[in-house]
Design a protein around this nucleic acid. Structure first.
Length: 741
DNA sequence: GACCTGCTGCGGAATG
């Protein structure tokens, strides 16, 4: 009997019927592979297969079969998803599949009615689809009923594992599974799903942590899909008063030739006209402005308004109507979105995806590409890079089309090597350490300090935390009254702790998006995510500011204005660009290749910048003297190593090189103003610093302890410093990269 | 100025 038939016959009758009635012509390779692992082994399963390859069904078909054959006494399978919309989607799909079966499905998140939840609590059977936050609330508030709910749990499915790995939210899931395991004394099998994993070994390690079962990642034959890519480049006008000068300079530069300013919006308009099309941008402002422009053009041409915006600050109902418009068959609709439409939620198959500027990562590129292409048709993705035209006298680093280079680098890394960024695990998730400590206390009532330490430190996410440091944390939490020591020497939640734990915001481990308000005396300048340490500078609203005072409770930063151009404060954690992307960008400048997807203007722009690179020495040197003792470092390294370099210069050579200012808004370059004649020492200084035994922790100022995650403010500073040095800086990588200079 | 995700239990009003 052939393999497909064999697998088919192994499935529960109601599933066979479902497949038959839905005219599935065959089981997909990923589904057969998943069935083999689930039916024939006792291992965990990592399903790493392309978008739209049928991963969720691959997990559920064999699991439902096993639950059907041997019904569990409690909830039998737990599905954990990153967003509510995805859970709703999966809930509808699973209900459809289970119409003829006697396995109940329950979805549980903030928008699900109390009555539904009560129903499950009364009769805990079948499948539960839930968010990490709602699961946390069950662990705390239904602590006494967990055995009744999960005592016979067999499977845990984690969807979009790449969205969890490398974040505290992912660590939280691992802690929750561990807590359930030690309570029920069972080891449910785990199934992880993802389309964009760069390193299977790392993902396997993540999925299996805290359990001793093997993780199997079946090799799955890639579904061959044709990909159509095109990349075009435009010059656009800068805004404000400089516009006219810019244009005049630009025209002179082009030798009074054709002016290629403008045309950018029209180009995007024509790409999306009368189509079902998604436009990805890298920030909210850009989604707003492109849709406003497209709508304007449509109106002037008497065409229908089919335009929507979708991002985190758009209300749920408007987002919903955008999603609905995209789902409607055979009706054109255009939605501009940020990351919000990147994960999982099924919005139907699109004719085309447009990306403004470069995607932030290869993983993101693939996720977005996967949105395009009806069954069988080629995926179609158009990149549009718009660059503000600058004067020819502008500084060298301002004349580089960084987005264009990054875009090419990301496409090439995928086409040439199928490379995707690996996701590094967090070594010291301290904010989560606080969270889980409080959660365990809130759930279980009083425990002895030793028992609490044992319980918390045995959780897989905290394997790097030293017992000594945990003691320090407990003592500190007792000091600030988050934890209280009873007369019987037991620990309970303290008065200040109650206030944190009893807030319903406690269940999420990521911070609410409240930003710090920046105030100059009584004038409000704007807001930033995290204030830099006192005495440091940052840019906002076109000016440079120095931090005078930070009120962490009221979230206010008091500043004074300073001269010059400061760097924008670097938000910790997220948004790291990998070193390989920067390296490949440099190669794009150096190599003599005309990539086939480059359109006319993009190719022209690339050839021009390659010439500039040759003439300026940028293609060979990492440090260039520009003018007036201003020099520019092109490190060609990722965000973490770049941040480390910036700190190294800041803390070790400010005096020796008479550094007046250091500025960089991105990992592409770093501009420095040096003392007179100091340029010739810069390179040697960096190299010699890299040869010394400087650790990442040496690069923190004396009183500095960056509070980045939600509960970092309750962590003793000495541990916080260690964590920042380990998870946000990388001296080793910096050394390695500098050796290549 | 990247970006994104999530949330309980209760009281009271409105409805069938």
């Amino acid at each position: 009997m052939n393999e497909v038939l064999h697998t088919f016959s192994r499935l529960a009758p109601f599933i066979q019927e479902y497949i038959y009635h839905h005219n599935w012509s065959e089981l997909r390779p990923v589904q057969i592979a998943a069935c083999k692992v689930i039916f024939d082994t006792d291992a965990h399963l990592l399903v790493a297969a392309g978008t739209a390859s049928g991963k969720t069904e691959a997990a559920f078909l064999p699991i439902l079969t096993l639950l059907y054959e041997n019904p569990p006494q409690t909830i039998g399978a737990l599905y954990i998803g990153p967003i509510k919309a995805l859970i709703n989607d999966q809930f509808a799909r699973l209900n459809d599949l289970l119409k003829e079966a006697d396995i109940p499905v329950c979805h549980w998140h903030g928008d699900v009615s109390q009555s539904r939840k009560k129903q499950l609590l009364k009769n805990p059977k079948g499948i539960l689809q839930i968010t990490p936050e709602s699961l946390e609330s069950l662990l705390i508030n239904k602590n006494n009923e967990l055995m009744r709910l999960f005592g016979d749990l067999r499977f845990v499915i984690i969807d979009e594992v790449h969205a969890f790995m490398g974040s505290e939210r992912g660590c939280q899931i691992l802690c929750q599974l561990s807590r359930l395991q030690s309570l029920t004394q069972t080891q449910p099998r785990r199934i992880g799903l993802s389309a964009t994993l760069g390193d299977y070994l790392m993902a396997e390690e993540w999925l299996g942590s805290g359990s001793d079962k093997l993780v199997i990642t079946p090799e799955i034959e890639e579904v061959k899909r044709q990909i159509k890519l095109a990349l075009e480049h435009f010059y656009v006008d800068g805004d404000g008063e400089l516009r006219e000068t810019n244009l005049r300079d630009a025209e002179e530069a082009e030798g009074r030739g054709e002016r290629d300013g403008g045309g950018y919006e029209e180009y995007v308009f024509n790409l999306s006209k009368r189509r079902k099309c998604l436009i990805f941008a890298n920030n909210k402002r850009q989604t707003e402005s492109i849709i406003a422009s497209l709508r304007e053009i449509a109106v002037s041409e008497g065409l229908a308004d089919i335009y929507h915006v979708h991002h985190g600050s758009i209300s749920a109902s408007l987002r919903q109507s955008a999603e609905n418009a995209m789902r409607e068959v055979d009706k054109p609709a255009v939605t501009a979105a940020t990351l919000t439409l990147e994960v999982g939620v099924d919005i139907g198959h699109l004719e085309r995806v447009i990306q403004l500027e470069s995607p932030p990562s290869v993983a993101s590129f693939l996720q977005r590409l996967g949105r395009s292409g009806r069954r069988g048709a080629a995926a179609d993705m158009r990149f549009v890079c718009a660059e503000e035209k600058v004067s020819v006298e502008a500084s060298l680093e301002e004349q580089i089309p960084w987005q264009l280079l990054q875009c090419i680098a990301i496409i090439q890394l995928y086409l040439e090597e199928r490379w995707i960024e690996p996701i590094k695990p967090i070594k010291y998730p301290l904010s989560l350490l606080y969270h889980q400590t409080m959660s365990i206390l809130a759930a279980g009532g009083e425990v002895s300090p030793a028992a609490l330490a044992k319980q918390v430190l045995s959780l897989p996410s905290f394997s790097a935390i030293a017992l000594e440091d945990f003691r320090l944390l407990l003592r500190y939490l007792i000091d600030i009254n988050h934890i209280q020591l009873t007369e019987e020497n037991k620990l309970i939640i303290g008065l200040a702790g109650e206030k944190v734990v009893r807030k319903f915001q406690f269940y999420a481990v990521f911070p609410d998006n409240e930003e710090y308000v920046v105030k100059h005396a009584t004038t409000e300048i704007g807001s930033i995510f995290m204030p830099p340490p006192i005495g440091n500078q940052f840019a906002l609203a076109g000016n440079a500011w120095e931090v005078l005072e930070v009120d962490f409770r009221k979230k206010i930063v008091l500043v004074k204005q300073v001269e010059g151009k400061a760097s924008n404060f670097w938000r910790g954690g997220s948004g790291n660009i990998h070193t390989r992307i920067l390296q490949r960008m440099r190669q794009v400048l150096q190599e003599d290749v005309e990539y086939s997807y480059l359109q006319k203007n993009a190719l022209k722009r690339l050839l021009k910048v390659r010439e500039l690179a040759r003439n300026s020495g940028l293609d060979k040197q990492n440090i260039l003297l520009l003018e007036n003792n201003k020099c520019c470092i092109f490190p060609w390294m990722g965000t973490v190593a770049y941040r480390t370099l910036e700190r190294l210069l800041n803390s070790c050579c400010r005096e020796s090189l008479e550094i007046k200012s250091i500025g960089g808004v991105n990992p592409y370059f770093l501009t420095i103003k040096l003392g007179k004649d100091k340029f010739k020492y810069l390179y040697n200084e960096i190299v010699s610093l890299c040869e010394q035994r400087i650790t990442a922790e040496d690069l923190l100022a004396d009183a500095e302890a960056p509070e980045i995650q939600k509960y970092d403010r309750f962590i003793p500073h000495s541990i916080l410093r260690k964590a920042f040095a380990s998870d946000y800086l990388d001296m080793e990588e910096l050394k390695q990269q500098v050796k290549k200079w």
